[in-house]
Nucleic acid binder design. Structure first.
Lengths: 251, 251
DNA sequence: TGAATAGTGTCTATAAGACAATATCCC
DNA sequence: GGGATATTGTCTTATAGACACTATTCA
């Protein structure tokens, strides 16, 4: 890491810094990676672009930020309008501002990610012409980072619009990083779930198998789970107990 | 976490989502928390506002994003112009977009944090009328989060402008969260340093004492450090070996 | 020589991984 | 009863915290 201090800023630098209010203003949008997990893979909702630019490519649902709404509210609105979902887990991810990321004009995108369980998913976003639930393929391990691929149900790659490949890569990296210390695994499951299903979700996010015993101990010790007393039924083997998120999450 | 699916979006929702290009565009700025550590406390560079709004209050150095620069470039420019620093560690933090955060007009701020060692600091930003190095007081433990206070050299609180108290709080929280798994502690130290100085930095960031033995073991095992063979001099006690960042950081 | 901190070695407590044994359901 | 997975218990291993001890420099 070089530390070249004391480069003398030019007059132009000063002008650029102080007169920026006169600059042309960029458009600001939010793009939401709505993520779920099923059958061992992460899934994401994509929208086919019907207009130029990038017509025919697949994009994250997004929209421009209205004058009187906060960024969080804009993201919630996008979810409500495009996926018909409200009240889901939603968190800001990163802001993408390369001047050339949108060929039309300068568009700065504040990316969000949202997590839902597969059941809610099925109600909200069936596969249609314009809307598709794509499977994510992560070509890197751990928290290396980098773009990820989206595949259709026949395992064909979907061409993503703009820099949405990067946004999805960042989302997966964030998920992997937060999973161990933040209570986010549950968000991909229905209100009640067995420990095995929770482990499935963790393994899907991390892209690697986990030790069953250690996983049980960690989860139960975390204080984030609460036994319901109920059990699975009709499963062809000993039924597992169902858990839910503890009211006082953590200690 | 409620999961109220299926609220039918109104026509107005659709229009808001799709006609947003016609919206008035917000201004987009970057604000940089330039952070250092010395004498057991985190320090941050603040600029006194000479204009309304919030005249007389202290703000993070910032500037509007120019049409042809990326967000990272804008943050680098702000550092070069206001602190005369280039090549320092710089990373995007979070984007603040409350519609009322700036009373003039809608300003969305992409916040960054930068890390420098105290020596570079002293060269770059002496205390002047307009520029001040403030001491940060963190009124919460661990990664709880929340606003932090800035104090002047006489320990008097400095009134911060806009939501910069929140931005600083987010910066401290991010630092605490990343410290254990990302190589960022070195960024607050000169190119060569002893393990004790590194521990000082970690304790300052975390706001709590660390176990000396365990800290040594972890740091040396991380593979991020490289012994220089040199030692301290004239220290009135056994001189410690100096280390630097390993060329191949981590494995 | 003594003050002060660097660096090493050992013991203990805690958490993760491995493995075995038992429990419980449906067929 | 047999298949299949849940759940519990024990053992081993890695890591963090605690503490004692030695090493080295300058005053």
């Amino acid at each position: 890491m070089p530390r070249d201090a004391d480069r003398a800023p030019t007059e132009a630098d000063y002008l650029a810094a102080y007169d920026a209010e006169a600059f042309e203003r960029p458009s600001v949008a939010v793009d939401v990676a709505l993520i779920s997990a099923s059958e061992g893979a992460l899934r994401v909702l994509l929208v086919e672009r019907s207009e130029h630019p990038q017509r025919g490519r697949w994009a994250l649902p997004g929209g421009f930020v209205a004058p009187n709404e906060s960024l969080d509210e804009a993201a919630e609105r996008v979810l409500a309008v495009k996926a018909r979902l409200t009240g889901v887990f939603l968190e800001q991810l990163y802001t993408f501002g390369d001047p050339t990321r949108d060929p039309r004009t300068r568009v700065i995108s504040v990316a969000y990610y949202a997590l839902v369980d597969a059941a809610t998913w099925d109600r909200a976003a069936r596969d249609t012409e314009k809307l598709r639930v794509a499977r994510l393929v992560v070509p890197w391990e751990g928290e290396t980072g980098g773009p990820v691929e989206a595949r259709d149900p026949d395992d064909r790659p979907l061409a993503l619009a703009f820099d949405h490949e990067q946004i999805l890569g960042m989302a997966v990296r964030r998920l992997r990083g937060k999973l161990d210390y933040a209570p986010i695994g549950f968000q991909l499951l229905p209100p009640q779930f067995t420990l095995r299903r929770l482990q499935d979700v963790h393994e899907t996010i991390l892209g690697r198998p986990l030790n069953k015993d250690s996983f049980r101990r960690r989860m139960l010790a975390s204080g984030n789970l609460e036994a319901t007393g109920e059990r699975e039924e009709c499963v062809g083997h000993r039924p597992a107990e169902r858990y839910r998120i503890a009211r006082r999450s953590a200690v």
